[in-house]
Amino acid sequence: MIEEINKQGGLFGDDEVLIKAFQSGDKKAFDRLLLGHMNRVFNLCYRFMSDYEEANDCAQETFIKVYRSLNGFKFQSSFSTWLYRIAVNTCKNRLKSAEYRNRMQTFKIGENKELNNNSYTGEIADQSLSPVTLLDKKETEALIQSAIDSLPEEQKEIIVLRDIEGFSYEEIADITDNELGTVKSKLSRARGTLKEKLKGLI
């Protein structure tokens, strides 16, 4: 599964060829480049932000930044690493922004009522879940997503990159600007934390 995900980039042609075409003035090459990475970037943003609209905004912002900077891209790192670094940083900045915090605060006040109606509680690990088989797939996904969302930012980042997007340890080290050993230890700890949060499901 992970290996398949890794091959998603560049579906609409070789990234390098498309970038060089764009740098030569072929602006339509950007659309083809975009098609090759758009959904993966969007999914990463969604898992990071836990909100479709926020994910859409972050993904759009990511590609706007890429478009503006692509002429200066020198192929010193892989385009994929560069692109996802921009995406991760955009999401992290968005999470820190006052606008996002205000919005989420407003949202959560309304959301709590809905959760109570559905017999959900805020803490996933402590709640008494029904057997997994009885849960709707959507509900399971929502619980997993909530668990991911409740992780500290650093752990969320590494879980999304490795366990959801399937980047290699080396790529994660490049994207997050960490040492390989740090990536390994952080991932082990993040997985432990998330596994604990999903205790009822596993």
């Binding site: 599964m1 992970i2 659309d31 975009l34 098609l35 758009m38 959904n39 970037v41 969007f42 999914n43 969604y46 898992r47 479709y52 994910a55 859409n56 993904a59 759009q60 590609f63 706007i64 399971t140 996904e141 997993i144 997503q145 879980i159 366990d163 959801i164 997985r191 998330l194 596994k195 999903l198 499901l201 596993i202």
Partner: peptide, 22 residues
């Protein structure tokens, strides 16, 4: 099991008008 669960998460796709909007 944890990894299976995580990997089973649906891949959320960008909206249809993503490129147009961009």
């Amino acid at each position: 099991t944890y990894l299976e669960k995580i990997n089973s998460l649906e891949k959320i796709e960008a909206p249809v008008n993503f490129i147009k909007s961009l």
